[in-house]
Design a protein around this nucleic acid. Structure first.
Lengths: 131, 131
DNA sequence: AGTTAAAGATTACAGATGTAGTCAAAAAAA
DNA sequence: TTTTTTTGACTACATCTGTAATCTTTAACT
């Protein structure tokens, strides 16, 4: 039921600005993308078109211009892509990925605090389901 | 200093069997890959050649045949790819990825136990560095 | 020694991707 | 109203990828 759309790297950049705020006119999107990427306006428009063709982005007319919105949900997309990565690179074990970070001393105290909170919440949830 | 080689999906499949055991002759690799993928022998050989050309795999002659070995380290590769993903999708916050799993109730008890152990080890390490 | 079979090298080819340029229509400006 | 600009549509093109087929060399078999 999830939308299994393949989104390329460049396309993802566009989608990300749409996730931040939408709907938006392409001119606006172009400006926003160009804050971080030195891409030609035409390039950005092409990427928008491809996203529309793939069904990842939607638009409605607003005068001569189009007003674009993401059609794929950010959380769903994140989860799908990260699950795929964990499956392919770590045989499905999330801890494999995390321990990679830990071993390279690439875990910050903030990360650890967040992880602890996530675990605590998970355990609460478990108890509730177990009553 | 890490080898920033781009490895495609199909190529990764080949690399994975080399990480399991190497060096190996291509005939052997073909058999192993075909246990999980219905790929033509020629396809697998092509992927091997591309990996060699990219510098991700190395070989030495063994009679008429070549004996292949991975040239990229598995841990390094895993870390590089997962860091890239965390950066692109979660603004660099690993906890963003993990909480995605937690929210979809996709964290197993094993995962949680592993995460706790990773955290405990990380904290021990911290103390040692802080003494 | 001649023939066959197997290995790597080279070639093929369509679809995806990065990165625009050109065209046509319509809106805005002069 | 004529001209210019802006927008989306369509076209372009090299490289990467998936997926082999063909060519060439050399080892192995007869």
């Amino acid at each position: 039921m999830n939308s299994n759309i393949d989104i390329s790297n460049a396309e993802l950049t566009i989608l990300k600005v749409l996730w931040e705020s939408s709907p938006r006119l392409s001119a606006d999107i172009v400006i926003d993308v160009q804050k971080t990427h030195d891409w030609h306006e035409k390039t950005i428009k092409t990427l928008l078109s491809r996203l529309v063709k793939k069904g990842a982005v939607d638009f409605e007319k607003s005068g001569r211009a189009y007003c674009y919105s993401p059609r794929v949900n950010q959380q769903d997309y994140q989860k799908r892509v990260s699950s795929t990565l964990v499956d392919r690179l770590f045989s499905g074990r999330l801890s494999g990925l995390v321990s990679g970070f830990a071993q390279q001393r690439d875990l910050s105290r903030d990360d650890v605090e967040s992880l602890k909170r996530i675990i605590a919440e998970w355990e609460e949830q478990q108890e509730q389901n177990n009553d």
